[in-house]
């Protein structure tokens, strides 16, 4: 996993609420056995019509908007547990998703893949969405060590929460699995006293 520290980028606005993982990556594209290449089908049915022509109304097809920060409506990533959703966003080039609310499994999946989910107030998200739609060149700075986010050029700095363990993993690019593998002795010990066989 690639470490994250400070990210400065323009944003892609996606104000829709309850964006489920079936929209992020539809099930028919889950047949690959590797983690790569899912970006091509990110938001497939919102991005392309049934003849595979790009839909001009969808934000990823609008040349004005680009960048590694996705600003999304609330309850982002609900539905299926498919980690392919996080892979698709990452593979497409997103490093950060900002929303007022994330579904639990998606949040874990994102964190496990170096994609930073930042939860901010609904009010702030609405104002950020409006600002980005108004000015696609607006840049946002995300400072993971300080747990802060601000619009470049603005004095308003907002703080975000992140679990300290997850933060240190992201900063170092460590996976949870490395941590767990180091715990195997403890786990074996636990098994000896386990009641539920």
């Amino acid at each position: 996993m690639e470490p994250i520290t400070i990210i400065k980028s323009t944003c892609v606005p996606l104000p829709a609420e309850n964006v489920d993982t079936d929209q992020i990556i539809p099930a028919r594209f889950l047949k690959a056995t590797t983690r790569e290449g899912f970006g091509d089908n990110l938001f497939r049915d919102w991005r392309y019509d049934s003849d595979n022509n790009p839909k001009p109304s969808f934000v990823l097809n609008q040349p004005d908007y680009s960048g590694s920060i996705l600003v999304a409506g609330k309850n982002f990533g609900c539905g299926s547990s498919r980690e392919h959703a996080a892979w698709a966003l990452y593979d497409f080039g997103f490093k950060v998703v900002v929303s007022s609310f994330f579904a639990d499994i998606f949040r874990n999946n994102a964190l496990n893949n170096g994609l930073l989910p930042i939860q901010l107030s609904e009010e702030y998200i609405q104002s950020l969405l409006a600002a980005v739609e108004d000015n696609p060149e607006l840049e946002v700075m995300v400072d993971l060590p300080k747990q802060q986010l601000n619009v470049v050029g603005s004095d308003e700095i907002v703080s975000f929460e992140i679990n300290p363990h997850k933060k240190s993993c992201l900063l170092k690019g460590f996976d949870d699995i490395d941590y767990l593998i180091n715990q195997k002795d403890k786990i074996t010990e636990f098994e000896k006293n386990r009641i539920t066989a």
């Binding site: 980690e83 996080a86 499994i105 874990n108 999946n109 699995i177």
Partner: peptide, 9 residues
């Protein structure tokens, strides 16, 4: 439910 990284864990 868990994601694939957690399946690996």
């Amino acid at each position: 439910g868990i994601g694939t990284s957690e399946v690996e864990q």
